[in-house]
C-alpha cells in the first residue's frame, strides 16, 4: 500500500451559481520515500491539490488514504491532529511567527502535540542543527535572511518527524542561489528517506525531483515517472514546453 492514495478526487466550488472544478477526478499514489513535484501554472489546481493532500482541506468527492487512514471525511479536529503528527509544511513566505524566536517557532508543532518542555527544546535544537542553524536559535525570524528563515521553516516541518513533507513554492521568495541551497536541502532529506512533495509552477525547480505530476485545469496532464524508467535519484533536464500549447502567436 502506498503512503498516499488518491482516488477520483474532485474539489468543486460554487461561485455565484457557477460550478468551478478546481480538481477534477484526480487519482495517483505517492510511495514512501518518494521525492515528487506537483507542477502547474497558477490557477491550475495544484494548490488545491496540495491543500487536500496536506489535510488543510477536504475533497468534494473521491477518497484519500494517508498512512493507512481514510481522511476524506475526517473532521476539522482529526485533520488538525493528522497535520500535526504526519505532515510538515514549508511555505513560500516562510510563515514563521514573528513574535517567537527561532527555537520557539520550531517548537510550535510539538506544543500542539503535547510534548514536554524539555523534550521540545531538545528536539527543536536537533532539528535546527540538521539545517545548520543551531547557533541562531535565539534570534527573531526578522533578524535572519530569507534562506535562513526558510531553513527554520524546514526544521519546523521536520520536528514532529512527519510521514510526508509538503513544500509550496519553497524557493519562490528567494534568490536563485539561496533557492538552490534550499532545494539541495530537500534533496538531502530525500536521500535520508523522507517523503517530500514539492509544489511549484517552475519546471526548472520541478526538474530536481525524479517524479513529476503536472496539473492543468484541475486534471493530471502528464506524469513523468522516472523511478519506473530506471532513472532513480537523477535530476535530468527535460525539454521545456512552451506555455499555452506552443502556438507561438505574437501580437
Amino acid at each position: 500500500m502506498a503512503l498516499v492514495e488518491l482516488r477520483n478526487v474532485s474539489k468543486i466550488y460554487q461561485l455565484g451559481g457557477e460550478e468551478i472544478r478546481a480538481l477534477d477526478d484526480v487519482s495517483f499514489d505517492i510511495d514512501e520515500g518518494e521525492f515528487i513535484s506537483i507542477i502547474g501554472p497558477s490557477g491550475s489546481g495544484k494548490s488545491t491539490l496540495m491543500h487536500i493532500l496536506g489535510c488543510l482541506d477536504s475533497p468534494s468527492r473521491g477518497t484519500i488514504q494517508l498512512d493507512g487512514m481514510m481522511i476524506q471525511d475526517a473532521s476539522a479536529r482529526e485533520l488538525a491532529a493528522i497535520r500535526n503528527r504526519k505532515i510538515g509544511f514549508v511555505f513560500q513566505f516562510f510563515n514563521l511567527l514573528p513574535k517567537l524566536n527561532v527555537v520557539q517557532n520550531v517548537e510550535l508543532p510539538m506544543i500542539y502535540s503535547g510534548v514536554s518542555a524539555s523534550e521540545r527544546r531538545r528536539r527543536a535544537m536537533a532539528a535546527l542543527a540538521s539545517v545548520d542553524l543551531a547557533n541562531r536559535s535565539r534570534h527573531r525570524p526578522s533578524q535572519l535572511s530569507g534562506g535562513q528563515q526558510q531553513r527554520v521553516a524546514v526544521a519546523r516541518a521536520l520536528v514532529n518527524d512527519p510521514r510526508i513533507i509538503f513544500a509550496d513554492e519553497p524557493t519562490g521568495n528567494l534568490d536563485s542561489h539561496t533557492g538552490e541551497a534550499i532545494l539541495g536541502l530537500f534533496r538531502r532529506l530525500s536521500v535520508e528517506g523522507r517523503t517530500i512533495v514539492l509544489v511549484t509552477h517552475d519546471p526548472e525547480i520541478a526538474a530536481v525531483t525524479p517524479r513529476r505530476i503536472e496539473i492543468r485545469d484541475g486534471r493530471i496532464a502528464e506524469k513523468i515517472d522516472l523511478t519506473l524508467a530506471g532513472l532513480d535519484r537523477e535530476a535530468p533536464t527535460i525539454p521545456r514546453r512552451p506555455a499555452g500549447g506552443g502556438t507561438g502567436v505574437t501580437q
Partner: peptide, 16 residues
C-alpha cells in the same frame, strides 16, 4: 489571522 493560520497548519485544533 495569518499567525492563526500558521498555527492551524502545523496542527493547532480549533479548540487550541
Amino acid at each position: 489571522i495569518r499567525e492563526i493560520g500558521i498555527c492551524k497548519a502545523v496542527g493547532a485544533s480549533g479548540l487550541a
